[in-house]
Design a protein around this nucleic acid. Structure first.
Lengths: 215, 215
DNA sequence: TAGATTGTTAATCGATTAACAATC
DNA sequence: TAGATTGTTAATCGATTAACAATC
């Protein structure tokens, strides 16, 4: 089986494509062209065609791509075609927000357990889940074969929590703590950082302010 | 005054640099080398040097860069040197999480007003703020000269909220709704999307699973 | 058929990395 | 002085864009 990697910028655009495609399904649209997708997202048609071609899917000239096929293929490429059970550690505000956020099922992520060190939070209901103590992590992960964990603890504790999780068999960590985590081989870690995103907005603001002063 | 744009990938790394630099300040470190920064973040020294050089700051061979100077310069480049008052619209779980999140001051963002359409939420306390009704948006924005808004409403309402905000004089929108917003000229919009980040983790997982099956 | 859209190869653009002289 | 680190120019790499033939 040949392996070739889809460029990361392309992967990052896939969720946007899926969003438009899901809207198309709801409208009953059967085929969609790269041109239409591009229009909807403010991208260039060539880029969308290139991105789609990287998945190997084929379209029909003049017609476009089967919406259903595209969705299935993108799901498969991203591994969102089968639900993954995940746990979340750290039920502060962000943790609770993520636990209650309904949108994750759309991408095959199913949060089934919440954990915290704080004795006062144990037993609290968040969404339809009950917060458990972190001392139960090991048995919960092993009993339920959990592979994915979401970390929303303070930065100071993130690495030690991650180390524990990896020793219990967790293979993927979605890290919301503002610090880089060191991964064991074979463990995938991805950090989501609000500051990074805000930095981009900040330079956009600066630029538009500067632009408004020169003419 | 000459204008040259700092590459976006570079801008995205600046918050990480700042994080390490702030740690250095707390330890009392006065100078830090690009090599040390790179080591800390798992980047290559050349890349860090290139990034820093794009700000125009100068270092001392063998010694490195003044931690204080670097922090000040990065803050200035990002426009994080003077506090910006902002409002947040949509006090669902994510909105509340962001409103309570204490880390924004570090990047000059100060959330001073919370708004929602839901009558049941008006008057609720979130952090040390009280939720106001969206009918008060216009006067609040104009009276207080607010330029920045954070949108955490459902996707279906995001564009109309954004349109209102822009008509009231908002110049920058940080959009957490899963949809693209159309901006008026002169308005900066940045979307933060959890799905994008999770897509990257997903392909990492897929790859490490595939790797574990080939030897 | 005519024309819109796909798919592919080549050209361009921009970021990363390498190489190395300058310097404290 | 010797050596680590900076700063800069050039080479490499990879993504975006352009061009165009194939096709329904």
């Amino acid at each position: 089986m040949e392996r070739y990697d889809i460029p990361l910028p392309t992967v990052k655009r896939f969720p946007s494509y899926l969003r438009i495609l899901n809207q198309a399904v709801e409208k009953g649209t059967e085929f969609i062209s790269a041109t239409a997708l591009a229009e909807e997202l403010g991208l260039k048609p060539i880029q969308v065609r290139k991105d789609i071609s990287s998945t190997g899917i084929e379209g029909k000239p003049k017609v476009g791509f089967s919406v259903k096929d595209l969705i299935n293929t993108l799901h498969k490429v991203l591994g969102w075609d089968n639900a993954n059970n995940a746990i979340l550690i750290g039920t502060g505000n962000l943790g609770k927000a993520l636990a209650c956020y309904g949108g994750f099922e759309a991408y095959g992520l199913n949060i089934v357990g919440l954990f915290d060190v704080d004795e006062n939070k144990i037993g609290d209901n968040v969404g339809n889940l009950t917060v458990k103590h972190t001392s139960e992590l090991k048995s919960y992960i092993m009993d339920n074969g959990i592979m994915i964990a979401v970390i929303t603890v303070p930065a100071a504790h993130a690495q030690s929590v991650a180390n524990d999780l990896m020793s219990y068999g967790i293979k993927a960590i979605w890290n919301f703590a503002p610090c880089e985590l060191k991964a064991e081989p074979g463990v995938a870690i991805q950090r989501t950082d609000l500051a990074t995103s805000f930095a981009v907005l900040s330079v956009k603001i600066k630029k538009s302010v500067e632009d408004s002063f020169k003419f």
